[in-house]
Design a protein around this nucleic acid. Structure first.
Lengths: 186, 186, 186, 186
DNA sequence: CATGAATGAGTCTTCATTCAT
DNA sequence: GATGAATGAAGACTCATTCAT
């Protein structure tokens, strides 16, 4: 594993453990087991390092969201696939998910990075919404608002799960997906 | 206006503009137009200051959430009232809302303050959920998961609005309330 | 009791309890029960306050050292009187004694204050020494060195007593006085 | 010379010049000619730095006190050796001596460091006293009081010398040793 | 005289960053 | 590339001192 990766993994771990605000270089160096100068061979500043970690997490999530996605499927199947993928990404990669969720809307992440390419998954969700509205299945509303709605449901369910408010087995997963679907039907 | 208030307002503004992590005393002092020693006549430490700002925001929100709430109303009316109040609080006081939403679980906020009395609004939401489930209107699921769900929808919609993804006038507000209601129906 | 006295007493107490280095105005104010501005009606600065306390202690000790002193008595009687008075002053006023002892040779006390008039007691001790040397009773040596010798004996005995290394009743007092006398005999 | 040593030397010098209480980092940094962060690569805090300087001084003194000591010598010779060593240490290393003498009981010096092994010199002095008392040479008194007494004489004489009350050449040194010996004879 | 809110220079300390090896 | 000693700007916080009341 390269030093660069060591550093990024240590950074994400520390963000998860202690929060972005208390992550310092010396903690990263100790955890990644590299010298203090090494970091600057890969990242020109702390901000760049954090943004790289953020970008990588976003790209990772972007890929996961489209796993097994097939545009030939029915509207409902496609919707469920996208929503399930999001939920499963959160379950499988809680550190990435929480980092993205917590800092995407914080002043720490600059707007241009917030809006970066996520491998087309956002576009795909918007497509499904707009198509659903054309077919009179999904309620007419701002498509971004609608996207935010179904995203917010997944996100809130995951956060409750992470703090162990409740289990999240198949039953709950199905309930969540259905809830998010019904929420936006006409 | 008292110096104490000046300081608290400047602090909340800065948290909103730059995030809790990058709020420094020197920024607060400049914004509040007070000398560096003055803060310590009112707050024994930075942590106490931030917690005090947090407490005030929570108390403020607590009052707003139950505004006009009437337990004699129909289940749906009560649900809408609670959800609308939360949404409107977020729209009217975005700084308070985001601060509470982002930092309630940060290590900076002491647990005893985090668990502040919210004037019973959380309890009231749970009551509505349980009552709705008894009457066969709301789907059977862990009541905390359900609460998390409807709260998360509001929170997510507000965050999208704050970064100007879409407008949030009466129409969108009604759509959001309905979506959150439909999400949990049987 | 005047505010001025309140302040000086509080200061000496605090020096005794915590050491000069950790005495702050706010502690003095609290202990003396005066407002923070009041101190500056009496002392132009902290250094002046401490020096006043030091001077007062020195004057106080100066008076005590000559209590019951009678220049008509025999050399030995006069010597014993001066030494006993010093010992008893230390026992009766440990705070004053320790403050003087600790800070007289520290850089904190300026030389001119260190050498202030002590009501003639130093002079009297030197007189006894010189007279004793003339009569061939006391060994020939620098009179200041001799003075420092007998002072040092009292001082060291008292410091051991203060930290409860041993009791200091009549027997030990007599032993100490005799030891200091014999130390300088021819 | 290493930075660490530079810092420790500058610290001891400043303690001597201005007293422990007014030693600040900025003064140390200027005197040692190092950057402000450098200190913390070697000492985790100011207290640790001061304690380290204290420890080094104590170890240094411990070696000097027993220089040339030979337990086969006569009681008087052994006594004189110990006393002379202490006096000469004070003359040769006034900064170390005064620092130890003034601050051993200050709250700044941690107790475990205060009770450092002094290489057995204290024990050796007590041995001489007790042996002298057994042989009827030294007066019967609490051995700690006796130790305090002869130590205090040296300390007092040195302090007078440091403020230039008198010279301290061989003659005065011999007189001091004799006085301290006679002070405790039967 | 007495007060205490307000002040800001100065303290210790942290931490991202540089640079010689 | 990799290292870590050295750095100094910036941070939280203290405290003697001022001044309007």
């Amino acid at each position: 594993m390269s030093k660069r990766e060591d550093i990024m993994i240590a950074t994400l771990d520390l963000i998860d453990e202690e929060g972005l605000q208390s992550v310092t270089f010396s903690k990263i160096l100790k955890k990644a087991n590299v010298g203090s100068g090494t970091i600057f061979n890969y990242f020109s500043s702390k901000e760049e390092l954090v943004n790289e970690v953020y970008k990588e997490a976003r790209v990772h999530m972007g890929h996961c969201l489209l796993a097994g996605y097939n545009s030939e499927l029915s509207l409902y199947e496609r919707f469920k696939c996208l929503q399930l993928n999001r939920l499963q990404f959160g379950i499988a990669f809680p550190k990435e998910f929480l980092f993205i969720d917590s800092y995407s809307y914080s002043p720490y992440i600059s707007p241009e990075i917030r809006n970066l390419d996520d491998a087309g998954s956002t576009l795909e969700v918007l497509n499904v919404i707009i198509e659903g509205q054309k077919h009179g299945i999904i309620k007419e509303m701002d498509s971004h608002l609608c996207h935010q709605l179904i995203h917010g449901i997944i996100s809130s369910i995951l956060k409750g799960y992470f703090v162990r408010k409740y289990p999240l087995s198949d039953l709950q997963v199905q309930q969540t997906l259905e809830a998010s679907w019904k929420a936006i039907l006409v």
